[in-house]
């Protein structure tokens, strides 16, 4: 296959995902409503109870709304990544995943195209959310909105690869919906998305330890720092390394010769 052919394949997979996204307006609205409820309702309520001390990367005391925006960005990507994986299980059940898997490209490449497509969809959602947050008064430095692009790419791949890996363990859609609940909620709540780690430690050392091992914590911190034009090397490194590991496992899981699908006797 020529290099150009790889490009056309990627364009096709991404284009299809975007088309599906455009056709599913309710999905777009749902993806926005969830974080907006947190921003407008929960944050208003928790503001007084939680308050946030001066922490990096913020240079001063901030409102709780400001603190949770990066976490809500992560939330959008987390839900989108899982939803995309859910659609992979659906596609597998309905058969359209087969069309992708029998095309003449290496399977790892096809899966990366699929992840890229879902990540780009989540990035569209994130920027619309950030625009609304900006109009609401949660304003980061303008350059920060460009700085978060690579962070969003990494986070999108991280949660997408996790969902893809999970999708190799289940054959039926119903099972996957259950698994999602056991993944999404712990991942989100046991992270620094809603409260800083130091505050979690004050409440429960065990929860703090769990949150410290949660890769989503590092993805959120990577986004938080990037939004304020800073690079958190530790968070970025851990998020990137986790992405590579999860992606490797997901590709292995979809390998018909070696992965989970092979053990279950097929696609």
């Amino acid at each position: 296959m020529r290099v150009g052919a790889y490009w056309h394949c990627m364009r096709g997979v991404v284009g299809r995902e975007l088309l599906r996204f455009v056709h599913q307006r309710s999905r777009f609205i749902a993806a926005l409503v969830r974080p907006l409820v947190w921003l407008f309702v929960f944050a208003a309520g928790f503001r007084m109870a939680l308050g946030v001390a001066m922490i990096d990367p913020y240079e001063t005391y901030i409102r709780y709304e400001v603190y949770i925006v990066p976490g809500l960005v992560g939330m959008i990507q987390l839900f989108n990544g899982m939803q995309s994986s859910l659609s992979m299980v659906y596609d597998r059940e309905m058969g359209s995943m087969r069309v992708l898997l029998v095309s003449p490209f290496p399977r790892w490449y096809l899966l990366i195209c699929k992840l890229l497509a879902s990540t780009l969809v989540s990035m569209v959602q994130v920027y619309v959310f950030l625009l609304i947050a900006y109009l609401y008064g949660v304003q980061a430095p303008l350059a920060g909105y460009a700085y978060i692009l690579p962070a969003l790419l990494v986070t999108g791949f991280l949660v997408g690869a996790l969902g893809m890996l999970l999708s190799t363990f289940v054959r039926q859609l119903e099972n996957f919906a259950g698994i999602m609940n056991f993944v999404i909620f712990p991942m989100f709540f046991l992270s620094s998305a809603l409260y800083p780690l130091w505050r979690i430690r004050e409440g429960s050392y065990l929860v703090y330890q769990i949150a410290s091992f949660n890769p989503f914590t590092y993805a959120v911190e990577m986004i938080r720092f990037a939004l304020y034009e800073q690079l958190n090397l530790t968070a970025s490194g851990i998020a990137l390394a986790t992405t590579v590991v999860l992606l490797g496992l997901a590709i292995w899981g979809y390998d018909p010769a070696r992965g989970m699908l092979a053990r279950k006797g097929g696609e």
Partner: peptide, 17 residues
Amino acid sequence: DLTVKQNLLYHGALHGM
């Protein structure tokens, strides 16, 4: 939910066209 054309073009892309 896609048109015939969109489905066929998608397949073409999956074959590097």
